[in-house]
């Protein structure tokens, strides 16, 4: 079933999701070209995590279709799971286990027995000295790096990062940005990241969609979105993604 070559790494059409009274998603369409970094931008409660949960087969939409890495996520969720890596908004490392144990378990869950990948990731994420300490002793930045390493264990074709840098100090954030750029450039990984830091989307993403109240309210490259606004309201002030955001969502990003 898995096609190794696909142009669209993610194709979602008409995603709808309701939780009781809350309409979390109200017809979301997304298309992400293979090998690009896509930024899903929106305030708290906009529906970013809900979208990620559906795209990563953790939950199912009430309506709509999802195709990830060339595989139908609703028909063949296991096929999608093999191809994707997920770093959820919450920490996902087992705090009672060490970094090494977390990575070994993750490798085994993908059927990988080779431990060299574990060592490689420990080194790449600067965790080798702490590798045999329980994760609950780690700093926030180390814990986040472990989460990302866990998501990368099987070298996924498509990587989902749900608010990867929220709560990190500026230095840790810069490190993670550099790593995300490296993954996109050197490993040609398709990356979908959600964020409510405009700066982050501006720097990392080649395509952006702004989501608000379960709908995509704007999309394009960061420059396109800024140019659009500049054309509408010409002024000498430089336009930032924040201005674009305020126009479309009508409220501040960090709620």
């Amino acid at each position: 079933m898995t096609r190794t070559v696909f142009e669209k790494a993610i194709e979602a059409v008409g995603l709808v999701k309701r939780y009781g009274e809350v309409q979390a998603l109200d017809g979301v369409d997304l298309e992400v070209e293979a090998g690009t970094v896509f930024g899903l931008l929106g305030p708290n409660g906009a529906g970013k995590s809900t979208t990620v949960r559906i795209l990563t087969t953790l939950s199912r939409p009430d309506a709509g279709t999802v195709c990830v890495a060339g595989v139908d996520a609703l028909r063949d969720p296991v096929g999608v799971r093999r191809a994707i890596g997920v770093v959820a908004q919450k920490h996902s490392a087992d705090p009672d286990a060490t970094a090494r144990e977390n990575l070994v378990l993750q490798a085994e869950l993908y059927g990988l027995r080779d431990r060299s990948r574990v060592d490689e990731l420990l080194e790449r994420f600067g965790l080798q000295d702490a590798a045999d300490r329980q994760a609950k002793t780690y700093s926030g930045g180390m814990m986040r790096r472990l989460d990302v390493a866990i998501g990368l264990i099987h070298t996924p074709k498509v990587l989902f990062l749900d608010e990867p840098t929220t709560g990190l100090d500026p230095e840790a954030r810069a490190d993670l940005w550099a790593e995300i750029e490296r993954l996109a450039r050197e490993e040609r990984m398709t990356i979908l990241l959600t964020t409510h830091y405009l700066e982050e989307a501006d720097r990392l993403a080649s395509q952006i969609a702004i989501v608000d109240r379960g709908r995509i309210v704007a999309r394009g490259t960061p420059d396109e979105l800024k140019a659009e606004l500049r054309a509408e309201a010409p002024s000498d002030e430089p336009v930032s993604l924040n201005d674009v955001y305020l126009k479309h969502a009508g409220r501040a990003v960090a709620a």
Binding site: R53, K90, H91, S92, Y110
Partner: peptide, 13 residues
């Protein structure tokens, strides 16, 4: 509650 379960469930295991 910790998020570990969701991580396990998105693996093909």
């Amino acid at each position: 509650n910790s998020g570990v379960m969701d991580r396990l469930l998105v693996t093909p295991a």
